[in-house]
Structure formats: C-alpha cells, structure tokens
Design a protein around this nucleic acid. Sequence first.
DNA 1: TAGAGCCTGGACAACGTTGTCACGTACGAG
DNA 2: CTCGTACGTGACAACGTTGTCCAGGCTCTA
Lengths: 350, 350
Amino acid sequence: MPETAARRGDRLAGSRYGNRPTMKDVAARAGVGLKTVSRVVNGEPGVTADTERRVQEAIEALGFRRNDSARVLRKGRTASIGLVLEDLADPFYGPLSRAVEEVARAHGALLINGSSAEDPDREQELVLALCARRVDGLVVIPAGDDHRYLEPELRAGVATVFVDRPAGRIDADVVLSDNFGGACDGVAHLIAHGHRRIGFIGDMPRIHTAAERLRGYRTAMADAGIPVADSWTSLGVTDPLRVRRAAEEMLSGTEPVTAIFAGNNRVTVTVVRVLAAHSRPVALVGFDDFELADLLQPGVTVVAQDAAQLGRTAAERLFSQLDGALVTPERVELPTRLITRGSGELPPAD
Amino acid sequence: MPETAARRGDRLAGSRYGNRPTMKDVAARAGVGLKTVSRVVNGEPGVTADTERRVQEAIEALGFRRNDSARVLRKGRTASIGLVLEDLADPFYGPLSRAVEEVARAHGALLINGSSAEDPDREQELVLALCARRVDGLVVIPAGDDHRYLEPELRAGVATVFVDRPAGRIDADVVLSDNFGGACDGVAHLIAHGHRRIGFIGDMPRIHTAAERLRGYRTAMADAGIPVADSWTSLGVTDPLRVRRAAEEMLSGTEPVTAIFAGNNRVTVTVVRVLAAHSRPVALVGFDDFELADLLQPGVTVVAQDAAQLGRTAAERLFSQLDGALVTPERVELPTRLITRGSGELPPAD
DNA sequence: TAGAGCCTGGACAACGTTGTCACGTACGAG
DNA sequence: CTCGTACGTGACAACGTTGTCCAGGCTCTA
C-alpha cells in the first residue's frame, strides 16, 4: 500500500488543525463534480445559477482556498515576478521596489523580493531560488558581474531585466541611470563655481554605477584641464567610519580639497556630517537625492536619479517581454537631474 | 486523445524557446531512473559516486532546475512567508521588511511582500493571494480592522503575526510599539520644558497607532492638568499640503500653540518644513526617528521606535509558531525611546 | 413526435515532484 | 556453498488543479 492515510497524517503533523479542503471536498459537499467546482472558482461559463450557488456555499462553509501550487504546475505560469536588489532598507530601493510592485499588480502578478547584500553568491542563490519557484520574470539589480548562470533560464523563457547596473557576460535588457553624465554635470558644476581641488568618495569600482560616476568625475576634471591628485579620490569606501576618515584626510594636508563629490546617498549623508563639524566651508555635490536635503544648512546640491522611474521602466519592459512584444535586448538610459540647493554653489575657501 | 503534444506546444507558445527540462529528461540523459535524479537533487543518500556524477553532468548539460511548484504540491510546505505592509517606499517599512527577510533567510524561507496602500480591501486581496500560494506564514501590518476572513487560514495552520497594529476581531499574535507610552513621554517632555499650548497632528484615529498616540497626548495633557483646545488637534491628516495647513492654523490665531507633537515621521518632516519658514521658534517632538534628524537646525527630538526590531520579533514569533513552539496568541509590546536633539527642548516663545 | 443541437456536468489524464515499496546484486557470516 | 543482509536503484502512486472529451437531458423545430 503506497502512502497510507496514517503516514499522511504524520507528514502533516506540523499543521495545527489538519489539512485544507480541496476542490474534491467542495464537490462532495455540494454534490457536484470536481470540474464543476473548478469552473465556479475560475468563473468559467457553463454552470447554472443554482449549481453555482450550491458550490459557493460549500466553498464558504469549508473555507476552501484554491491551491495555486497545483494551478501553477498545471498552467505553467505563476503570475509572480522576482526582484533581487541590494538592500530593501536603503531608501533608494524602497521606492524602486514599490514601483515594480505597482506595475506587477497592474498585470495581476505578485512580487517576491530578496536582498543580495551586495554579495554575488547570495544574488545567484536568490535568483535561482526564484527560478525554482518558476517566477514568470526577474528584475535584478546585480551584485555580481557574471550572469552566465542565467543562460538556461533565459533559454527557458524567464523574462529578465537588469536595473541600475548592466548584466555581466550575457545579453539582457537593462535600464540604467546616466551615471556618467550625471557625475560629469555635478563635477562640472563645482568647477564652474571656481573649484579646482575637488575630492571624490565612492564605492568599489567593480560596481558599475560607482565606476561610471568615477569616470564622470575624471572626465569633467580632464575636460577642465585639471590634473587629479591621488589623494583626492577615495574608492571602495561606504561604511560611515571609513567615509569619515577619507573625507577628513582630503580636507587636511597641504593641498586640501575645497569641494567634495559624493558617489552615493550614504556617502553624501556621512560627508554632510563631517562638513557640519568642519571649520572652513566646503562645497558638496552628492549623487542621489535624499529626503530633507533641502532643509540642511546649506541645502545639499545633488545629482538626482528617479528610483521609482527606474523600477517602473524595468517592470514595464519585463511585462512587454512576457507579452512577446520585445525580441532584442536593449539598454535604456534615464537622464539625471542636477538640483542646486546651496552646498554645491559655495565658492572655494582658499 | 487527451491533450495532444501539439496542443501542449500551443499552450507554451508564450515561452521563448520551449519547455524546461524535468527530472525525467535528466534521468533519460543520464541513463538512470527518475527517482535517482530526485535523490541527487535533494542530496539524499543511497547513490553511488559514479551515478551521482553522471546525473550532475546531465543536470548541468540540460540546465535543469527543480520545479518548486511540484515540490510544494507534494510536500505541503513552501518555505516562503508573506509580508503585507502599507507602503514599501515609506522609510519606516524598508528596514522592517529587511529584518523580516533576514529572519526568513535564516530559516531557509523566501519573502513575498505586498503593499496594501492602507486599503483594507487590498490588504485582504493580498493576504488571500498569499494564502492561495500556500505561504507557510504571514506577517501582516493591517490596514483593515476586521480579519475574520483569516479564520479558515488560521485553522488550516497558516502561522500569522500582526505587527505595528493589532488584528481586528480575531485572536492572533501581535507585536507592537508602545505607542501610548511613547506619545505620553514625548508630550510630557514638552510640558516639562514649560509648554502648555501643545498641538497634535496625526493620522486617522481608525489606525491603531494613530489612536494610541492621540490617547498618549491627551493623557499627558490631562495628567498635567492642561485642558486641550479643539483647535490644537488635527486628525486624519497625512498629505503634506493638509499637514502644512493644519500646522499653520495652530500657529496662528489668538491662542497659538508653542509646541507641536507630530504623530508620525511624514507629518514630522512636513512640520519641520513649516517651522523652518516660521518667524517664532516653536518646539517640536515627532513620533518615529528619521535619518538626518540630528543634522537639522535645531536637531529634531523624537520618540523613536525600532522598525527593524519590530520586524525581527514578529518574524521570530512566526517561525516559533511554525515549529509548534507557541500555542496561545500573545501581545508583545516593544518600548520606545525619547531622543533629545534640541527641537523638543526649546522653551515656549510666549 | 422524432431528430438535431445546445447546455450542463463529470470522468479522466496530465503537470513535475517525492514517499513507499520491491527488486536485484554484492558481500559477509555460518 | 547458501542464506541473510545491506545497499543501490527504479516502478508507481499521490499531491490538487485544469484541459479535453463524452454522456445525458433539455429545448426547439419540422
């Protein structure tokens, strides 16, 4: 005898009060066939009003809820998409995630999301777990730089869009901000206000956005004919303590910087703290906008990118893929916007 | 002939390159039985090294990925939990969600989350969708005040914990902040600094947290023997425009308030903006901490609650339920902390 | 009133996986 | 040499749903 009733009870010992009712149970209670219940649950035609009522009553009485796992198994689509990002607690990703969710909702899909914590292994683990759950599509903010592990998934038809940073070693849709252009603009803005000794504090250059912003900084400096001293750039620095130390170093010594370009919102916030305690006024432009930037003294000038718009665009491309509307992977780049609030317009305090 | 191969092709026309390999395909390629593949995939014992290697090669070659829908159907557990909150873009919920995710991850579970947008219908829709997907457990920040629709789920053994606000009309675990006590402390702090005309701006009292904070405000005022004028409290106000108007009203007239207690972080931020443009100094204490509160002029005194700790506590209770460790629903209340930074210590400018 | 056509409802297979059981082979003990 | 045992392996049913097909009853028309 395969899998006796007793055994089945054992297997479900974890449940508090036994098993959930199935369509079969509903059918028995309503005195109809299994398929009729299915029809009622799915609003399919071909059921008389009276039968439908009886089925509805049985559903109500038993507290029946369709098992979507079985449904997915049968239908092949899960009506859910996955979002892998770096850290949901980061104020940059909250709105992005929410925007993706809204688009998903409009398409009747749920969103499963996971934080990679900037760890490539964890990213892969998450992505593959999502694929095992057969999400219809993936929105990925990559932590790693090699995504060949996704090839079988892409072949199998999992729609995929990368956001904020491009995919590594595979050809896939990607939605980016104009990190290079934005950084150029921000640094050029400082130069236009008379600064020549400008510091840059950013993340590890292996992260695409960080590398692009650094390139923007270097290009703007080169375009203005300003040689960049080694001591002016500080890379791979994100935790507040090290950012603080890096900023303090740039601000001391024989050739102190008169302005700082901060590579992302977390860096900016820490630099603001350092500058607040600093004697001389130092100009500051940050990449990424943040709440209350306008209320600080002085207001913080930033290169703003629209996180929600990034998410929305990516999600919309995802569903276009699922509708079969897109064939060739594309790279979409969204513009950034320089918002002047005071800190970037301070003159050099030489 | 039921469901011909041709039909099957039709059904999958949406996929880009056809179907995914199954264990059967892997078995055929490796020249072993289906169950042997299952054993390898799940790391079960009873497979020789040589067989295992052949299976692994076939898996690699075909890009096989286990279909968790089928697995769930068979095993009854999904290793995923659902989180329903108000708005992921709100800086209060980001860290909370992340904390829940971390606990889930430690238990090998994925997190599916959805935003209710403070709409009870949408909350129910989300919760039921999650139940249909057979999540093992639910963490809910309720928008509605009647959760009897969850009764069948609870009976069926879906672990459930409510956070931030209690469940309505059902008996369930709940993890809260001490909203009443925190508000009391905050208002008492203002009173201790000499204020008597203190305004309160908060959310709709149908939201539990808002009601509790209002109660705290009233209690603190009553304890100090201060009668509260109607014009000092403004409820159901969250969007910046109306908060602004409410604040401006309190600050004008014959009996203007000399201090404001703000009912949540969004209100606080808007009030800060209003006060920045105001001629007279006005004291402010806000409920909820927020980034950069210390850098404003003056720093903003707040009643801080630990969102991450709320999420962590709730998630841990959830997994305790799943382990069968908990039987009786409980109410856990986490303390709040008054953080003085200047704005709450301003004397009344009478 | 008989036949055609429609409408309703049910039987059955299939989705991809895992639990159970049984078979066969190799090996050690008696 | 034979029996028992242990182990590796595979056949098969079952999870709960949906798609297909067929049967039976009804209505409508000639």
